[in-house]
Amino acid sequence: MSPILVVSEVAKGFVMHLRGGLELPVVRHVGFSLSEGECAVLGGPSGVGKSSILKMLYGNYGVDAGQILVRHHERFVDVASAGPRQVLAVRRDTIGYVSQFLRAVPRVSALDVAAEPLVMRGTAAEEARRQAGALFEQLNLPERLWSLPPATFSGGEQQRVNIARGFITDHPVLLLDEPTASLDATNRDVVIELIRAKKRAGVALLGIFHDGEVRDAVADRIIDVSAFAPERTAA
C-alpha cells in the first residue's frame, strides 16, 4: 500500500531565549511512514517528544530540519516547509487532529463546535449539525448539553466534543493526541469502534495512547519515539 505520510530526518528543538538561549533538543532523525487504513501509535515514556511529533505533523510546531510529506489532493506537500496558507489547506482537507484539550470558544454551542470542520468544507450548517448530533449520541453526550458552550463541561464531556469534532470529517490522515485520557470504559469502547471504522474507510491514523487497552485494540504497529531521542542519536 502506498504511503500517505512520509516523515524523514525530522529534527526539533526549542531555544529558550528567556533562559539565556538555553537549547532543548527534543527529537532527531525522526523517520517513519504511514499508509492508508493503518493505525500507528507513537510509543515511549512521557516527555520523549510524542506530542511534539504530532504537532509538527499538524504544522502547529515549527520543524528545524527534515521533511514531512503528506499526500494532499494527489500531490505531496512538505508540511515542514509549507507556507501558512498551504498548511491551512492541508488541515482543512487532509490532516485532522484531535487534541487532548478542547480550546473552547465563548458562546459557541457544543453542536456547532463539532460541526465546524464540516461547515468549513462546505457542508450546509443543518446537515453538519445533524452529523455532529449523531456522533454525540454515539459518544453518549447528554442531549441537554448540545446547545451549550462546552467551556463549562467536565473534562470527559469536553473530550467527547473534541472527538466528535475530529471524527466528523473524512480527512485521510487523523492525528490523535490521547483522545481517551478522561473517558470511562463505555466511551473508550466507542472511540475504539470509531477508530476501527476510520481504518476500514482507509484513513491513516497516528496516535498517542497511554491506555494500554486502547492501544492494543487499535494499533497496527508501535513507533518507538525513544529511538529519536537526541541523547541516544548523539552518542
Binding site: G59, N60, Y61, P84
Partner: peptide, 10 residues
Amino acid sequence: SGLTDRVLDD
C-alpha cells in the same frame, strides 16, 4: 510571522 497557532505555540 506565520500561522497563528504555530507562532503562539512555538
